[in-house]
């Protein structure tokens, strides 16, 4: 009989003997992977949403009065002194009025009684894509606010800040659920393997006496952990995939979720999560074996 056939038979025996605790471990591993992957999926989607919003980030500098061509050049020079920017657009009061009227559409007539220059002139500053962190945007905004003739600077501060703190919070949740995944997989698998070892003490003793090699005794336990990792993480990821598609279908009508393009993990990320889970489970099984299986 080949080594692997014998070892696989041993694994089958182990699983049959301790199927109750094996099942509990499998569920725990699946649940841990599901929880971690769920938050990680939200986090990655929020990051890509943030990137998308960041692409549209525009700082609007409202001015006291329309700058002449010379002042415009001076302002451009001042703005680019802080950092290079993608684009600087000067919007006159008249242009602002037209744009606003266009936005009102059929209700344009509400502006009939208003003077054409009631909106202040402004500068639209589109920062470079590398200006992503909230602090950098804040610094740039403060710099622009100090430019001569500036009334105020707007870039949707409140929204951007909330979004930033939300993604920060999510990253903490992802870290915590990642820790949960590590702890549960390692400890649960380690505990189950320990139970198997203790339950089969007599057999292991006999195996040593009849000449079983260390690998013959150890590898089934390692495979057990490996199997827990493969099955647990696959079930977890598959459950999340099913849940993701169910939510997408269920909430596909007009609503908040439809504003954003949510996507599932790429195959590489899914495989990485499965791979790491397998590694953790095998590590759990290895550590117990090292501690309790004296050969």
């Amino acid at each position: 009989m080949s080594f692997w056939v014998t070892v696989i038979r041993q694994v089958g025996r182990n699983l049959r003997q301790t199927w109750g605790s094996q099942l509990m471990t499998l569920l725990t591993v699946s649940l841990s992977v599901l929880i971690f992957a769920f938050f990680y999926l939200i986090y990655t989607n929020m990051l890509s949403l943030g990137d998308k919003l960041g692409d549209d980030l525009t700082l609007i500098v409202y001015l006291e009065e329309e700058p002449g061509p010379e002042l415009q050049q001076q302002l451009i020079k001042k703005i680019t002194t802080f950092d290079e920017v993608e684009d600087i657009r000067f919007i006159s009061s008249a242009m602002a009025y037209e744009r606003f009227a266009g936005q009102l559409g059929q209700n344009e007539d509400v502006l009939d009684d208003m003077p054409k220059d009631f909106l202040p002139p402004s500068i639209e500053v589109i920062p470079l894509k590398n200006l992503r962190s909230l602090n950098q945007v804040k610094l740039f905004s403060a710099y622009l606010a100090k430019l001569p003739g500036t009334l105020k600077v707007q870039y949707g501060q409140e929204w951007v800040e909330r979004f930033y703190y939300f993604t920060k919070l999510l990253s903490i949740v992802v870290l915590l659920s990642g820790t949960l995944l590590i702890l549960t997989t390692i400890f649960m698998v380690a505990y189950t393997i320990r139970l198997t070892i203790l339950g089969r003490q007599d057999e292991l003793e006999l195996l040593k006496l009849v000449g079983a090699t260390n690998n013959y005794i150890r590898i089934p336990f390692l495979l057990e952990g490996l199997l827990q990792g493969i099955l647990g993480s696959t079930i977890g990821i598959t459950a999340l995939y099913t849940l993701f598609h169910w939510i997408k279908l269920r909430f596909s009508g007009p609503g908040l979720l439809n504003l954003f393009e949510f996507s599932f993990f790429s195959p590489i990320v899914s495989m990485s999560i499965i791979g790491v889970s397998i590694l953790l489970c095998t590590l759990g099984s290895y550590s117990t074996m090292h501690k309790f299986l004296r050969i």
């Binding site: 009989m1 080949s2 080594f3 014998t6 006999l206 195996l207 009849v210 079983a212 090699t213």
Partner: peptide, 9 residues
């Protein structure tokens, strides 16, 4: 068991 450890068919 004693034959399995030496991988007999």
């Amino acid at each position: 068991i004693s034959m399995e450890v030496s991988y007999k068919k």
